[in-house]
Computed example of a mutant assay.
Amino acid sequence: MIFKPDAIIEFVSQYITLQEGDIIFTGTPSGVVLGKNESKYSWLKPGDTVSISISGIGTLENKFV
């Protein structure tokens, strides 16, 4: 990530009041990798699975196709 989670929360909370259960979606702006050695990066490819787990809630898995 380019920005640390606490910096993102601080920035967003300058403009809105965050409530319990709010979600801040982050992504990668276009052009982030431009000018960098792309061979150093591991890109998602068909068959890869991305998982996230939250204790007490469960696991969300998405398979890349």
Rank of each mutant, 00 (worst) to 15 (best):
L60G: 03
W43D: 06
G31R: 09
G21N: 13
K45P: 08
Y15G: 01
I8D: 04
D48V: 00
S39Y: 07
E20G: 12
S51I: 02
I2G: 09
D48K: 02
Q19N: 12
K45N: 15
Y41A: 12
I23Y: 09
I52Y: 08
I24C: 02
I9S: 00
L18K: 06
G31S: 05
K63V: 10
T59E: 12
P29D: 02
F3A: 00
M1Q: 11
S39H: 10
E20S: 14
I54A: 01
D48L: 00
T28W: 11
G35A: 02
Y41P: 01
N62P: 00
E20A: 15
E20I: 14
G35E: 09
K40R: 11
P5G: 05
S42P: 03
V12I: 06
G56F: 02
I2E: 12
N62V: 15
K4H: 13
I57P: 02
E38C: 07
N37H: 09
L18A: 07
I24G: 06
P46G: 05
I9M: 03
G21I: 05
F11L: 07
K40W: 04
G27L: 01
I16T: 09
K45D: 15
L44A: 13
V12P: 02
D22V: 01
S42W: 03
N62T: 13
G27A: 04
D48P: 01
I23K: 09
K45L: 01
I2C: 03
G56E: 06
F3I: 00
Y41W: 09
S39F: 00
S55T: 15
K45C: 07
D48C: 00
Y15Q: 05
W43Y: 13
S51Q: 13
I2Y: 15
V33T: 11
W43C: 06
N37L: 06
K4M: 02
L18R: 07
I57D: 09
T59R: 11
S51H: 12
V65A: 06
S42F: 04
G31D: 15
T26F: 00
V50S: 03
I16S: 06
P5S: 06
V50A: 03
Y41K: 07
G47S: 07
